[in-house]
Design a protein around this nucleic acid. Structure first.
Lengths: 194, 194
DNA sequence: GCAGATATGGAACGAATGTTCCGTTTTCGT
DNA sequence: ACGAAAACGGAACATTCGTTCCATATCTGC
């Protein structure tokens, strides 16, 4: 039998998520990875394959760590209004606190890579679609409970909310102040009450 | 005196805008530029300096060609509602038609480069800010004319609209269908009528 | 038409990229 | 304790990156 790995494969993958999330795919070099992950070149390539493959694994890890939980909560919650508000406020406070303005790994990846990497854009699209679907179910729940407007179809509102979130993930990169995010979130959510 | 330039400096710069706009900064190599612009390496470097400098010039050219006109119209128009509707519909049809999903050069550049290039992020931020300012003035005009809601400050609504547009520029990368954009634009604009 | 200036094309540059290979070290099962 | 298997560190790889240089071709003003 063989020697045991000296590093936690999943912990290192989380570091990779952070690196790619912060700097993007192209701006993160192989050296950045070696230094940032704290493992050797060979361990990197033996464990995760090449850079592109590592990036794909990072995308999937991000989904598991950051998105799945939210999707599940959107499905489970009884108080859709409460949870959607919580979601937007979480994005807001993240936007204000985050000094390095990482935004959203999914949004960053689509914008940087959609035109040049169909595999990655496919993965990202399906994740964003799943998120929108969950949002749609929550909106439907709120409509059924009578707390959200039924002027628009649940799907339409979900698309709108999803788009607002995409926007927030861009706006955060401009180092806008707290009030900017307050305005955007307040007005975006007001639509549900029309 | 010297030989005259064989190419139109501004026309070539427009081609550079298109290249960077489509593929982003990192994914556009020096070779891509030489081939795409149709001029030789030396002409490229003699005329525009290095890649980074060319990118900055492309950003400014984009502003002159695509943004300034819109900003001016937002300032001049008497019918703010009409023009804002027109603006969103233009973005929509662009989103639907554009098969290569270029999005917005400003948004693309912020997302790709904000964390790693402060000079570029500064330029882009100021352009986006000017755009928001123009949007704000138009909203104010609509409010004064009584066709827009005064429930929110003009600045707040401008921030919201600006964020929606940012979102659209991301959503377009996912190759979403026409109905998706219809929903987003309809609901975003409905806020002005609350 | 000549001299000076400038655009052009192609070769060539060093540096950085992503990746692989190999010798060594370490650990596990027997 | 021993051998197989795996992780490790570092050297080395070919390729591509952005960039510069130089010889040539071409144009302008006098």
């Amino acid at each position: 039998m063989a020697r045991t790995k000296e590093f936690d494969e999943k912990a290192v993958l989380n570091k990779a998520v952070d690196l790619f999330w912060t700097k993007g795919y192209h701006a993160t070099s192989a050296r950045d990875l070696v230094e940032g992950l704290g493992i050797s070149r060979s361990s990197l390539y033996d464990t995760y394959g090449d850079k592109h493959s590592l990036f794909v694994q990072a995308l999937k890890k991000y989904r598991e760590e950051k998105i799945d939980e939210v999707i599940e909560m959107l499905h489970k919650t009884d108080d859709a209004e409460e949870y959607i508000k919580y979601l937007f406020n979480a994005i807001k406070s993240q936007a204000v606190q985050d000094t390095c303005a990482k935004g959203c790994f999914m949004v960053n990846s689509t914008v940087e890579l959609a035109p040049v990497d169909k595999e990655i854009s496919g993965i990202v699209n399906s994740i964003l679609q799943d998120f929108e679907d969950a949002l749609c179910k929550a909106v439907k729940k709120g409509q059924d409970a009578g707390v959200f407007t039924s002027r628009y179809a649940a799907r339409s509102l979900a698309r709108f909310l999803s788009n607002s979130i995409n926007g927030l993930r861009v706006t955060v990169k401009s180092n806008a102040g707290k009030k900017v995010f307050d305005d955007i979130v307040t007005i975006s959510l007001s639509v549900l009450k029309q």
